[in-house]
Write a protein that binds this DNA or RNA. Sequence first.
DNA 1: TCATTGATATCAAGCGCTTGATAGTAGCCA
DNA 2: TGGCTACTATCAAGCGCTTGATATCAATGA
Lengths: 151, 151
Amino acid sequence: MAGDDEEPVGADALDRLVWALRRAELAVQALKEQRLRPLGMMAAHYTLLMTVHAEPGLTGAELARRLNVTPQAVASLVARLEKREQLERRAHPRHGHVQELHLTDAGRTALRAADEAIAGIERQISGELSTPEAAQLRALLDRVAESARRA
Amino acid sequence: MAGDDEEPVGADALDRLVWALRRAELAVQALKEQRLRPLGMMAAHYTLLMTVHAEPGLTGAELARRLNVTPQAVASLVARLEKREQLERRAHPRHGHVQELHLTDAGRTALRAADEAIAGIERQISGELSTPEAAQLRALLDRVAESARRA
DNA sequence: TCATTGATATCAAGCGCTTGATAGTAGCCA
DNA sequence: TGGCTACTATCAAGCGCTTGATATCAATGA
């Protein structure tokens, strides 16, 4: 055809699913940081605390895989949260070298406050969607995530 | 109630929309990096080139707002892409101090190759969804993004 | 005409994350 | 029992991004 190479890339590139996904996540992430800042917590800290809360006793390496970052990055975050007394490292019962991560009471308190802010964002966003729409969006996102991870 | 404070945060925190959104974006982003690496391009470069392609003549500051990063970060990326001859800075017709950004032919070629990889990811992901599902997901994501940005 | 305002670009310093490399420990198997 | 392998944790160096501050220039208003 004559028009095949008029455009170096498809004009619909910005209408793609992956682009819409990025835009949405970027906007939500910015909102998270904004709401979490007054609480003296960063989104990365919230994510880490929430992950450890969901799976207590997680090791640093395992946590790094969950968060898609390197073990060193996790160690840096853990060190800071440990200094704030929000997280503690305990020796693994079998592996003396390995350290399990657990939330402290202060960590749970901080997490609860942060989660209140995140829940507010969730309410606001899902409030503009009908209940079935929200459920379907969640289901579709899960399928997208699994599809990308399986690739 | 007795069980109100047994859990510091709602047990459904991981079932939230914002969490599913993050998981999906993280997985897709990792896939992008993986597919773009063999082409010697990073996801950030692709995003920048695509944005400039969509709006030629964009200034650095304007571009920074589009990408949700600081002007300095953009300047760093631009300098690198300029060194690769994929991007060029031209003086603004009215504002001598301001510089417009334009893609070079090499930039368009590189963008086309990169976009091929991204399009492959798009096909793979949307291939696991029905056509109406993909359309609805895109529409819902746009509403989420606008809702978060408006907050 | 000239000062002020607003926006751009750029420099400098600090911090967080990544890649690469090293040390320690449990599990497996000959 | 001894050695190999796999996994964990940590150190060191480099790079990219952020915050903060500075210089330049167009546009506005007195």
